[in-house]
Amino acid sequence: MNVIVCIKQVPQTTDVKINPQTNTLIREGVESIINPFDMYAIEEGVRIKEKYGANTTVITMGPPQAEEALREALSMGIDEAILISDRAYAGSDTWATSYTLANAIRKIGNFDLILCGKQASDGDTAQVGPGISSHLDIPQVTYVKRIQQIKDNIIRVERMMEEGYHVIESPLPCLLTVVKEINEPRLPSLKGMLRAKQAKITVWTQKELNLDPQHIGLSGSPTQVIKIFTPAPRAGGQILSGDPEEIAGKLLELLKSEIS
């Protein structure tokens, strides 16, 4: 079995600053980490490897320093790493990113399972995982909190819902996005860190992937950020007092006046 884990390097902060001119994130001076949700995807990949003897590959699209994130994934037990990096991919939105990642996965060729974190902590869109599965035309299950079993080319998972969970079966290959309930990511091991330090990271640029220029980078991104702003705080509500009957009457009057 071949498992591919898609990860993203994000700024280590919840207080993301936006460049008002370009409407993009300011990344300078902020330490980068692996997107916390992707850590669960990495851990699950390693667990599948330990349980079923899978070969695991981690991929990311990003600037050259995203190599650090790949090495960290290797130190946790992932076997191979591929960095997709080219100026031509800069400015990609979720559509172009998932298009690029899907094509890189197609180039890897042999895969049974793709794992992604449910969303990135910087953009919070939760679109790239599902986007990859759409581009590859394979099934997807989002918000997976447990893999029950993988047997006879069928995977059975639990998909988290607000109350309870769905049990879903899917043929392989398929893509899962995982939530933090799925596992507890391990700390790297020393042997893993030493191996990761020496490991060769494969780098694929536009030369290797040769993607349609119409579909990559800023120009291939249909998303246009028109404006980013902090919504005005909500005005305080009204508190109605009195006995229940009285309140109900007042409320009815208020609602009526809102409609008219």
Binding site: R186, L187, P188, S189, L190, K191, G192
Partner: peptide, 20 residues
């Protein structure tokens, strides 16, 4: 268990016996 998983019990043990 965490220390074991991180290979830290083996750092002073010769490599031929499974250490670092």
């Amino acid at each position: 268990k965490v220390l074991a998983q991180s290979d830290l019990f083996g750092i002073f043990i010769p490599e031929e016996y499974g250490g670092m």
